[in-house]
Design a protein around this nucleic acid. Structure first.
Length: 625
DNA sequence: TTAGGGTTAG
């Protein structure tokens, strides 16, 4: 394109510069600019205007402004071009300044300002400018409509369009696309149809973008047949048409037609794949979701630039993001990392809130970091002026209790400025059970079942504590109280996903269709685990039965059934993933550790409180939970 | 013969 300047003149250069603008190619544009200066065409107004436009399109406002500032004579095109650049990059200050300095306002400049106001949410200013405009053209109306549409004033956008039409202003495909978007959001199928009629009448119906906007509008309004008809009869379709039709079917719950269309697509891009995958997920078809996701990866499809741009968009992490990170890490046993993130959060200048402290104290609790937890608890008030609430106290009681500091925990409860809730007492009760302080446990347990006579967990804990003392009469007494109050123990339930189906196991469950295989696997587990040195922790069983029966009962806990099934029905290297409704019991925790080693399978178990990652004989919670 | 309006797919 460059070369000797023999055949270039100030009519050719603008065309070349313009070509760079259309391709938004700043590099080539700069080369052209240098060339122009070198051969002495830099003072031509027409050439200069195209340079301003080229830099503006490339959003390089510094160079655009340099050209503008050096121009000896400024015509309206120069003013409009530099203004358009500032509007494009959203620089309100500079745009207002240029608009104010213009020797003569014109419709094009005002239209740009309406667009800018629309971008910035200044609907009032856009309206005012529009109304004051002596000569409104099609673009003025269109800019106002899109300003309203962008600011979620869909009804108003439609009303302005109606007025535009009534005033005899010409309507083109650009403004109709805007209006159709409003119809889609409002589910205004009737208006959409009227517009469709209008579009056909004025003969612009074959624009692909318009076709796509209609497909989207009809399927958003639930008029899938109309969308389908349009799609089938269209002369030219592009990738967006196909993707719109697929997501239209999915939006209307038509998964099969969506899949048929997906399969017959000439070319599938990342949008097609993700539309179909999320469509499956939305309609609870999980095995297909996973299968398609795998297939997508096998096809080598990766998230595109747009996907990345949309998901990376949160530039400054807010307090909720930090909270989620702190809580999530702690829950998965990465306590140090979690506390590290808390420090980093403060370094980044984000102010912690009360939820942050739930996460931080919770992190300390997961690892028994009593001193550190106390320090954070004290700093809440002293440094951050956050009054601890009942949950923070509960968390501290739990931290102390789990660490075996039962007296300190009880003293803290007594010193609370508010009435302790049952969860706080419950935490202490759990700690008493864990550390074998049966007397304190019984005293607190009896108090708790009075406070909350319908809570099954407290009765069960108390009954277990009493059973640990060997006081079977006491156990029967508590069972009696439960019966009296109609309290039923929530059965332990473990869930595991295999091949897209969720399987549920209750303790002692025999209903699973593959129960025979599970039984065989349970026997194999028992043998292997014993060889590895596993000894059942029969303290967990609170029935007045003999030791051998206790072992059998232990081996029918829902977690173990789920693990056995996981060993049969899933294959490595994927971990066995289990969700349990209650806290995992000691014996199952130990058994899971042994299984992870003896069978070489990782197990990820989420219980009521946290995640346990079992790997090669140990757990991420370091046996502290 | 340079300057202004749009969106549709995840």
């Amino acid at each position: 394109m460059l070369g000797k300047n023999g055949d270039r003149d100030n009519y050719t250069y603008p065309i070349l510069v313009q070509a760079c603008a259309i391709r938004a190619s700043e590099f080539e544009g700069k080369q052209m600019h240098n060339h122009i200066l070198k051969f002495g065409f830099g003072l031509d107004v027409y050439v200069q205007n195209t340079l301003i436009n080229m830099y503006s399109v490339c959003e390089n406002m510094r160079d655009a402004r340099n050209v503008f500032d050096e121009m000896p004579v400024l015509d309206s095109v120069a003013w409009n071009s530099i203004l358009a650049g500032y509007v494009r990059v959203g620089d309100v200050e500079q745009a207002k300044c240029i608009f104010g300095r213009m020797p003569e306002r014109n419709t094009i400049a005002s239209n740009s300002m309406i667009v800018l106001f629309g971008k910035r949410g200044c609907v009032g200013e856009a309206w005012r400018l529009f109304q004051e405009l002596p000569q409104k053209d099609m673009v003025s109306w269109s800019a106002l409509i899109s300003c309203l549409e962008k600011n979620e004033m869909y009804e108003e956008a439609l009303a302005v369009f109606v007025k535009m039409f009534a005033n005899g202003i010409m309507v083109d495909e650009v403004v109709v696309v805007s209006v159709l978007s409003a119809c889609a959001t409002l589910s205004a199928a009737h208006t959409g149809k009227l517009i469709h009629g209008l579009v056909v009448k004025i003969g612009i119906e074959s624009y692909v973008n318009l076709q796509n906007a209609f497909i989207h509008m009809y399927s958003s309004c639930g008029e899938i047949m109309a969308a389908h008809k349009l799609f089938n009869e269209a002369f030219n379709l592009d990738q967006i048409s196909w993707n719109s039709m697929i997501s239209g079917y999915l939006k209307c719950g038509l998964v099969e037609p969506a899949k048929t269309l997906f399969d017959s697509m000439p070319e599938k891009d990342v949008v097609s794949w993700s539309a179909m995958i999320s469509g499956y997920a939305q309609h609870d078809r999980f095995s297909e979701t996973l299968a398609l996701f795998q297939e997508m990866q096998l096809c080598g499809i990766r998230p595109d630039e747009t996907t990345l741009r949309f998901s990376r968009r949160r530039q400054k992490k807010g307090v909720s993001t930090w909270n989620a990170l702190i809580l999530g890490l702690a829950m998965n046993g990465l306590v140090e990392k979690s506390l590290e993130m808390f420090s980093e959060m403060k370094t980044c200048g984000v102010t912690p809130n009360e939820i942050t402290f739930m996460g931080v104290i919770g992190a300390c609790r997961h690892m028994g970091l009593v001193d550190e937890g106390r320090r954070h608890f004290d700093s809440m008030m002293q440094e951050h002026k956050i009054e601890p609430n009942v949950k923070h106290y509960g968390c501290m009681v739990d931290l102390l209790g789990r660490a075996g500091m039962l007296k300190e925990a009880e003293d803290l409860i007594e010193s609370m400025p508010m009435t302790p809730d049952v969860a706080t007492w419950g935490a202490l009760l759990g700690a008493c059970k864990k550390h074998g302080d049966h007397d304190r446990g019984e005293r607190i347990g009896r108090k708790l079942i009075e406070l909350d006579p319908n809570h099954d967990g407290f009765h069960v804990l108390l009954s277990n504590i009493v059973a640990s003392k060997g006081d079977w009469n006491g156990v029967h007494e508590i069972r009696g109280i439960m019966m009296q109050h109609g309290v039923i123990k929530t059965p332990g339930c473990s869930m595991i996903e295999a091949d897209g189906v969720v399987h549920e196991f209750l303790a002692g469950d025999k209903k699973h269709p593959r129960m025979k295989e599970i039984e065989v696997m349970l026997d194999e587990m028992a043998q292997k685990l014993k060889m590895e040195g596993y000894a059942p922790d029969t303290n967990e069983v609170s029935f007045d039965i003999d030791e051998e029966e206790k072992e059998t009962a232990l081996f029918r806990h829902s977690e173990k059934l789920a693990i056995a099934f996981g060993l049969i029905a899933t294959s490595p290297p994927s971990p066995i993933r289990i969700i349990k409704n209650l806290r995992i019991c000691n014996d199952c925790h130990m058994a899971a550790k042994f299984v992870s080693k003896a069978f070489g399978r990782d197990i990820v178990l989420r219980d009521r409180h946290r995640f346990h990652h079992f790997k090669q004989g140990s757990c991420s919670c370091n046996d502290y939970w």
